[in-house]
Simulated scan of single mutants.
Amino acid sequence: MEREELAAWLRLALTPGVGTATARRLLAAFGLPQQLFAQAPAAWRQVAGGQAQALAVEPEGLAGQLDASWTWLRADETAPRRILTLADPAYPPALLQTEDPPLLLYLLGRLPAEWPHAIAVVGSRNPTPQGLANARHFGRSFAQAGLTVVSGLARGIDGAAHEGALEGAPAGQLATIAVVGTGLDRVYPGQHLALSHEIARRGLLVSEYPLGTPPLAPNFPRRNRIIAALSAGTVVVEAALRSGSLITARLAAEQGKDVFAIPGSIHSPQARGCHALLKQGAKLVETAQDVLEELALPARRAGAAPATDEPGEREPESELLAALGFDPVSFDALVARTGMAPAVLQARLLECELQGHVARLPGGLFQRIEST
């Protein structure tokens, strides 16, 4: 892309009051942005009505954004960079078919020759320990089956899904795609800095937002339509009733994609969103293989390790693990269930915690973790 072409696309994308729908009508009428801005304002008004007036004024900060974008594209870094426009043949076809495709997509990482078969894995920013384990396991299993895992790089379920995909993907496979709500020159949350670098090396970071865009709250629900569009289906691992993950699930359903939900404890607030999806017709899944079979996708591809559909083999369940069940439980309740002396129970809980079978939760609660 030449600098002048990029400048015209940025001017159109940054013009206040001109949304994607209006921009697409203008592009359909006049061709590429360079041709569009060569037209007289009267011609714009015939297509865009009152919104056309904004096109006559160069957006504030355009020159700085152009310089920053041009420099970013040519930075001497190990991870390739690219800015796709709606007119670029490499633009994701599935996203192009949605009602509101971004005019520009910023890409950082391994640029695919063609967009891969992918599955979205999303969920709560404040998951249970079991939810984190499930997200990582599903991400790893999908990657082993040859799928690219798409998520949003958020804390909690998203990060675990990305990490699992990176663990499971064989060499040469696009492991995971992170669709972010900031400019690609920023990492949010900061705790995922190292993870974002690994995704740039073995996967792909995607944003519709200009460089320098901070983590503004409205950006994150909006980017969810891209997560849904890039994926054949969406798996919700854990979600509260007011979770952004339910937005992704709704958008996936509106795009005609399958929605899957993992059930949880009836006592867990983080399971209520999944249960609501199941009541609305989402497909209940317990293993990655459930999703692969529903989507009629192969369980593995050449060169990929077999997907581990079930959690890893467990040690025989102890009396304590059986007493724990899978719901959060207090220490006093465990004393009553097991009949153990408190000191003995404390020691057994610590042993199980060190072995990764039990997690301590806020409020003095304990929860059993399924081995993965």
Score class of each variant (00 low, 15 high):
Asp88Lys: 10
Leu103Phe: 07
Ala333Asn: 09
Thr71Ala: 15
Phe366Asp: 00
Ala13Ser: 14
Ile83Asn: 06
Leu10Cys: 08
Gly19Arg: 00
Trp115Gln: 09
Leu345Gly: 00
Met340Gln: 05
Pro342Glu: 00
Gly363Ala: 10
Ala28Met: 01
Pro298Ala: 15
Gly17Glu: 04
Glu370His: 07
Ala28Ser: 13
Ala120Thr: 01
Phe326Gly: 10
Leu365Glu: 08
Val187Pro: 09
Pro311Trp: 12
Trp44Leu: 01
Pro328Cys: 10
Gly325Lys: 14
Glu351Pro: 06
Leu174Trp: 10
Pro127Ala: 15
Trp44Ser: 03
Val285Cys: 03
Thr287Tyr: 09
Leu62Ile: 05
Pro92Ser: 04
Leu345Phe: 01
Ala178Trp: 03
Arg25Phe: 00
Ala302Cys: 04
Ala299Phe: 13
Ala282Gly: 05
Lys283Gln: 11
Thr71Ser: 13
Phe331Asn: 05
Val149Cys: 05
Arg301Leu: 15
Gln191Glu: 14
Ala232Asn: 03
Asp100Trp: 00
Glu5Trp: 02
Val18Met: 08
Thr248Leu: 01
Thr71Gln: 14
Thr248Phe: 00
Leu166Phe: 11
Ala261Thr: 02
Pro189Ile: 10
Gln35Tyr: 11
Glu370Ser: 06
Ala29Glu: 07
Val235Tyr: 01
Pro80Asp: 11
Leu334Cys: 10
Thr338Glu: 04
Ser151Ile: 07
Phe142Met: 05
Gly146Tyr: 10
Leu62Met: 06
Val237Pro: 07
Pro59Cys: 10
Glu286Lys: 12
Ser124Tyr: 10
Gln97Phe: 00
Ile199Glu: 04
Ala21Tyr: 06
Gly50Lys: 04
Gly123Asp: 07
Gln191Arg: 15
Gly159Ala: 15
Asp185Met: 07
Gln35Phe: 11
Gly19Thr: 08
Ser268His: 13
Pro298Gly: 15
Arg242Asp: 13
Ala322Arg: 15
Ala322Lys: 14
Thr213Gly: 05
Leu111Ile: 11
Ala52Leu: 03
Ile226Pro: 05
Leu10Gln: 12
Thr182Asp: 07
Leu174Ser: 11
Ala217Pro: 13
Ala171Pro: 12
Glu319Pro: 01
Val187Phe: 03
Leu277Cys: 02
Trp70Leu: 04
Ala296Thr: 12
Arg202Asp: 09
Ser196Ala: 15
Gly273Thr: 02
Ala228Thr: 04
Pro221Leu: 07
Ala299Tyr: 13
Arg223Gln: 02
Pro80Ser: 14
Thr128Tyr: 03
Ser371Phe: 13
Pro101Asn: 02
Ala299Ser: 14
His275Leu: 13
Leu10Ser: 04
Val121Met: 08
Asn224Gln: 08
Glu167Asp: 14
Ala322Pro: 06
Ala296Lys: 13
Leu55Thr: 11
Leu174Asp: 07
Leu12Glu: 05
Leu295Arg: 00
Ala288Glu: 02
Leu95Asn: 04
Leu284Ala: 05
Met1Glu: 11
Arg300His: 13
Ala63Tyr: 03
Gly233Arg: 01
His192Arg: 03
Leu26Ser: 08
Gln367Val: 11
Leu103Asp: 06
Ile226Met: 04
Asp290Leu: 06
Ala79Phe: 02
